[in-house]
Each structure stands twice: as C-alpha cells, then as structure tokens.
Simulated scan of single mutants.
Amino acid sequence: CVYAHIPGDGREYVITTRDAVKIRAEDGRQVEKVNINPFISNLPQEISTDSFCSGDASGSTSQAANIMEALEVGAKLLLLDEDTSATNFMVRDARMQLLVHKDQEPITPFVDRVRELYDSLGVSTVLVMGGSGDYFDVANTVIKMQDYRPYDVGNLAREIVDEHPTQRQVETPGPFGQVTTRIPEAASFNASKGRREVKIEALARDLLVYGSDTVDLRYIDQLVETSQTRAVGHAIYLAARSLMSDSTPLQDVVEGLEHFFDQNGLDALDPFYREEYHPGNFSRPRKYEIAAAINRLRTLKIMRV
C-alpha cells in the first residue's frame, strides 16, 4: 500500500515509496499516442509505436503503455507480478529466441530493459516472479518466500548464474532513450451529457462516469475507495478548465492538481463548494491515479508530443 498506515493495523513493517506504481497487462484498454518504442517496435502493417494509439490494446502493448505512462508522470518504483503480466512481454527464453528470431519479434522483453531503467532513469522495480530464473542476471536483490517468510537468497542466485549461465541473448535494439511527454487537449474532456452541463459520478471504486464516457478503472489497484474515484473525476474537470493549455505537459497538469490540493483542500473540487459547507465525499488520490484515469478516457486527445 502506498498510503499512510493506521497505527496497529498490522502493517507496521510494510513500507514503500510514495511514487510506486503497480503495472500490469490490461487487454482492451484505450491508449492514446504513447511512445512504447523502448519495448515494442516494428509492429505489423507499419503501426506506429513512437506515438501508439489503440482502442483495444493487447496484453503486451497495454503493459508497455502502462509503464511509459507511469514514467511520464514521475514514477520511480514499478511493482509487477508475473501473474498479471503478459508472458511474452516479460521474457523470451533461449528456445523461443531460436524459433522466432529478433527481426521477426516486435517485443523487447522487460528482462532486457529492467536494469537499464534503474541505471539510466533511476527507476527501480519490485517483481514477483516464480517462473523464470533469467531475472537473476539483472537483479540486485533476490528474496525467496518460504512458509510465508522472506529469505535473502541473492548470493545463491548469483552462484546459480555463474554455474548455469543463461543461453538467451539480450534483445535490446538500442538505448531506452528519454521518456516522451504528451500534451492533453483540454477540449477532449467534455463533462457534459444531454442537458446536464456536468455529469461526473463515481459508480464504484473502479467505475467513473465522466460526461458521456464510462471509464473502467478496475485495474488501477491503487485506487482503494469510491471517494478517491469521485475526486479523480472532479480533478480532471478542474484540470481541463484551469490547468491545461497547448503547452502544458500531462506531468505538469497532475502536479498542478497536487499543488491545488495542498493549497485548497479537497472540498474545493466540489462545484457547489462553500466555506461553511463540508460535503465530506472526497478522498485524496495521487497524481499517478489521476493520470491513469485521464489515459483511460476514450475521449482523450493528445494535442502533441
């Protein structure tokens, strides 16, 4: 959990950083002009990957987009679980490399980028993995869970690497490069529906109505309650009205929202807000979850990158 703990809740020894983001595959999600080149290139039919768009992304392209979008707004720790990741995105073993040569494979697997993310961009990764030892070659720390207890087995993992070298080849076609920034178009955040000038409603923790769009947030694991989702919707509306411009990158937009929260509190998001009125129906989201919701709006248009 990335949020403050309540004393005595049993998580006293569970800590993380504020800028940790959960990453997973998300088949079918909306992607709008995201540079996924570090992970995917040379798609069939010459589909662009430096400004990738899809209304129905695959597991691998959605996971690549999720990583690049998180990096775009400043994430410094990525949390991945192989159970919710696209297998072909995570690793290609030596046998598969022999069967499908790199010039026929558009994906640069995460195992070949994870170390570069740390060395070049200062972005760490915590990965839950039980199916591939190829990550031993690039890991700083290896922790084995046994009978619900963690054990540091880094030295053993390094011995295994020395005694049993991997047969797979590193598949990076070039350096990771700089993370592309995008500028969202304010006009694409139309919150009206029918006769209603503003229609924003959190139907559940993972379902947001914004204008005529219903945004599926079920895979944004770090949204934990409906009041956060409600705040996300109103924060997007505020951002479109007062923070977005034809020269303002998405990262500056969501950081502007955080500054707004610090200065004005959450109640100021309510369109009917008065100082003496305390609606009490907002919980503060992080900039990462606000950006994630923006990226999943099917009306989203990126002005330029």
Rank of each mutant, 00 (worst) to 15 (best):
C1L: 07
A4H: 14
H5R: 14
I6A: 15
P7E: 14
I15L: 07
I15R: 06
T17H: 03
A20P: 00
K22G: 01
I23D: 09
A25G: 15
E26D: 12
E32R: 15
S41H: 08
L43F: 02
E46W: 06
D56T: 13
Q63S: 12
A65N: 12
L71G: 07
E72W: 08
G74V: 04
L79E: 02
T87G: 10
T87Q: 11
D93N: 14
P106L: 04
G122K: 10
T125V: 13
V128W: 09
G131W: 01
S132I: 02
V142A: 03
D147A: 15
D152V: 04
I160F: 12
V161L: 02
Q169A: 09
G174E: 13
G174M: 12
S188L: 09
R196C: 01
K199R: 10
E201R: 05
A202Y: 02
L207C: 11
V209K: 09
G211P: 01
D213R: 03
D213L: 04
T214A: 15
D216Q: 10
Y219R: 10
T229F: 08
I236S: 07
D246E: 15
Q251D: 14
D252F: 11
V254S: 12
L257K: 03
D262E: 15
Q263G: 05
N264A: 12
L269Y: 00
F272S: 11
Y277E: 08
H278I: 06
N281P: 03
R286W: 01
A292Y: 09
A292D: 14
I294D: 03
